[in-house]
Design a protein around this nucleic acid. Structure first.
Lengths: 228, 228, 228, 228
DNA sequence: TATGAATGAGAGTTCATTCAT
DNA sequence: AATGAATGAACTCTCATTCAT
């Protein structure tokens, strides 16, 4: 984590091009998903395709780089939320802001290629997991959050809300607010315990892949619990 | 099954081919998303590509036809649920069964390409909307369902749960049950009213695309309501 | 070896195209080696590149198909030579005609791609080895050919003469004749035995790859034998 | 080594770079033929591609420069051989050593692209021709070498043996020795005169390309002479 | 002078779609 | 009506070569 990890300072113009590529990728990925061609991205960035290939070994590498930026943003959001004065408001803030990030980058899931580079995502897990835990623990300590909610649930909740973001609507913001509110209702202390556990932890919200159920705590099986 | 989709009575073998194509498409789309080639689908159906083109103007038409079948199934599910003895259980059953249908056809969203054929989906709306309304109304009448929930919300809820289905997990069924339960908590009568309204109605659960927000002008703004 | 091995009779036009592609490949490979692009070959054959890909999975497959034809020709030459009335003349004829084939297809060696499809070449071995043995045995029986020459030597001799064919000359035919004659001198019964043995058998003349030395028979080490 | 190839005296480091490039080219060309990229060569030499371009106008220039060095080595071999005590042994030595040089630099032919720089090769002719003539004349004077062999034949003989070097074999050295011996047999005084004449002179052994046949009008046509 | 970066012109390959039998 | 074959337009990626520091 010293200077070694930094990829040898780029020349000014190269750095500019690199960023231009990532920005273009962001715009295009967000607008049309993984389908965009590298030629298009390069053109949008004002450089030649070959230049894109100097910076990124292949299309997936570019998607990856683009992701890394998003990850940084996601972590920043979580950090700020975890330090909020009121734990419950911190949780709400985390969900709201993360959702904005996700919605602004539609089709982000496509970006995660099958057998490719899971590194950055794993790194996301490592950075964000403690923050999620803190968000949940603090809120539960105040009694504002139901006891059986686990940190990993937050990722899934974001995934669910992200799906709402895919619904085209005249007033999308209001639509999202509606379902955020709905879900928040579900997060309040409730008599019906949740069956199963959250998936392993984190990330799934952004990248569907791997992940195990959870520790579980389904004591009572109230009638509202869905049975298999 | 929908007579409307096959305007002229087909010769027996042609009809068999048509169905074989749709079945093959179902299998392949489900397994690998939009990436499959028409050649592959045709081969899997045991016919030539050109034959596929006799039945479907293009790849999207085929995907569309495939969808029509799913729609029929979705309507059937809604019908049965709307006639359930216990309204609340009917609602739960609707969600559960629909979710199964959605999850079994993962990657279904890819199938919808930007400017293509919305007809069949609109038809879904027409057939399913009354059923959703009945589901909701009945449940609200018994006091089991919160008053501010609208029929259109059901589609969105299914869309959210469908997103959970995209998360790979060791025990996917348990995972889904967890979040179905979570959402059911949110559907119970609650002091916090939902802001906005459900999107225009129906469908988005299966096919996110177009559609307007809702009519409601939100009354009370409890502290759990997310503000813009 | 019945009809099963034939790749399902092609339609007339397809067969025409296929042959046109092979012919074009022959012309271009002969003239410029493996460097030619598939686009060029397809253009020369008057078809679209994609058509080339319908017939041949990739560039190497095409080269391979082209080779198969050459192999047939080579086998025919060997067959005729092995049945010549005068064994020595048969040998001379084999060398002369094979050389013509090789020279007419300059850069034929390039065609043999590293890790690809050695099948057809191995098949050449199987078909041609007995013929080479017969050529050598018969000539040795009449005392016209030195006793220590092995069938596998013939391939190497052709490889050597093929190298002469790569030398640009005003009168190439005469040039070739000169060195064929020179080598024939070396094939006559001689007091100096050859060290080592011929490589495993056949093929090396056309495709440098694999192959083990030989059985060996170097009894006396006359002064003309090159020592290590 | 050839002063002519470096017109202006280079600064010490520049000269070092130049040589490093040639050495790297040698290593890589020998190992993988013309396929290597200039980037690779430059990297192997520890310099930047652009630096390579300061020293060599293009890829072929570099190959060319690399050749120049080989030529110096070839000339040295010929010189030593021409001064051998026993003329026949000198000839054998020349062939053996030259062959080693050729085999050690396989794929050398690829280096010669159609319309490029023949100069250095012509210069080889000028330097080596007298030596070849001396080798042949001396050997013929002792009666050890057939009378109709011409100096230019030696290059062709090396070209032929070089082709043997392209054959992969478990014991390549033994394989080469076998065919060197075979050819030496052919060089002994023989009753069958060679038709035609050697190509113009020299070089073809290393670089097959252009060049005219020979002057000789063939005299007697014994039965072993191959007729057109 | 030497470097890092950029570039244009392909090369090989794939696929939705259309044509001719 | 159904097939085999053909097509053109892309797409990803590479490399010799040139520019700007």
């Amino acid at each position: 984590m010293t200077a070694a990890s930094a990829p040898r300072r780029l020349r000014a113009d190269a750095a500019r091009n690199r960023q231009a590529l990532i920005d273009a990728a962001e715009r295009l990925f967000a607008a049309r998903g993984l389908a965009v061609t590298l030629d298009e991205i390069a053109a949008a960035a004002g450089v030649n395709v070959a230049t894109a290939y100097r910076h990124f070994a292949n299309k997936h590498e570019l998607a990856h780089a683009f992701l890394e930026q998003k990850i940084d943003q996601a972590v920043a959001i979580a950090q700020e939320a975890a330090s909020a004065e009121d734990p419950w408001q911190g949780l709400v803030q985390f969900i709201t802001r993360s959702l904005e990030l996700i919605v602004a980058n539609r089709d982000l899931h496509d970006v995660f290629t099958p057998g490719h580079k899971r590194e950055s995502l794993d790194r996301l897990d490592q950075r964000i997991d403690p923050l999620l835990t803190r968000l949940v623990t603090r809120a539960q300590a105040t009694g504002a959050l139901r006891e059986d909610l686990e940190p990993g649930d937050l990722s899934v909740i974001l995934a669910m809300l992200g799906a709402v973001g895919d619904i085209p609507a005249e007033n999308q913001e209001l639509l999202l607010r509606r379902y955020v509110t709905l879900l928040l209702c579900a997060l309040r202390p409730a008599p019906v315990p949740l069956p199963g556990g959250a998936p392993a932890q984190a990330r799934q919200a952004h990248a569907p892949r791997s992940g195990a159920p959870g520790r579980r705590a389904d004591g009572a099986q109230a009638s509202d619990t869905v049975e298999s």
